[in-house]
């Protein structure tokens, strides 16, 4: 292989804990994926807590183009109907009926139910 084609671009992702989402770290150049993984550990995980590391060849990622990003972020308003914010008036309604609002905080706390 020509030395000019030697390096491939890889994007590096890692996961800090079981609860953490996978996080993009940075990119690196490596001749193959084994080297990419080994270099990812050397370059990005020298001190960090880490449970898992992914390397993905950049050419295999279909990311947004610059134009797509611009257009996408432009339409990210007026989405209240998709969010709890659009239903916030219910809090007052339930209050009138002497009931609490089952909001995100409340619902996410329902991990345990009473043992019968």
């Amino acid at each position: 292989m020509e030395e000019t084609n030697f390096y491939q671009e890889y994007e590096v992702f890692s996961k800090k804990s079981v609860k953490a989402p996978i996080q993009h770290q940075f990119s690196l150049l490596a001749p193959n994926e084994e080297m990419a993984l080994s270099m990812a550990l050397e370059n990005f995980m020298r001190r960090e807590d880490v449970l898992d590391v992914w390397v993905v060849k950049r050419e295999n990622i279909r990311r947004m183009t610059s134009e797509e990003r611009t257009n996408w972020t432009k339409r990210l308003d007026n989405k209240d109907y998709r969010k709890t914010k659009g239903y916030g008036y219910l809090r007052q309604k339930w209050k009138e009926k002497e009931q609490g609002m089952l909001d995100e905080k409340e619902i996410m706390s329902w991990k345990e139910v009473k043992k019968k």
């Binding site: 292989m1 030395e3 084609n5 030697f6 001749p31 193959n32 994926e33 084994e34």
Partner: peptide, 9 residues
Amino acid sequence: VRQALSKEV
């Protein structure tokens, strides 16, 4: 090293 590594593992 670069030459050796440029082959697929």
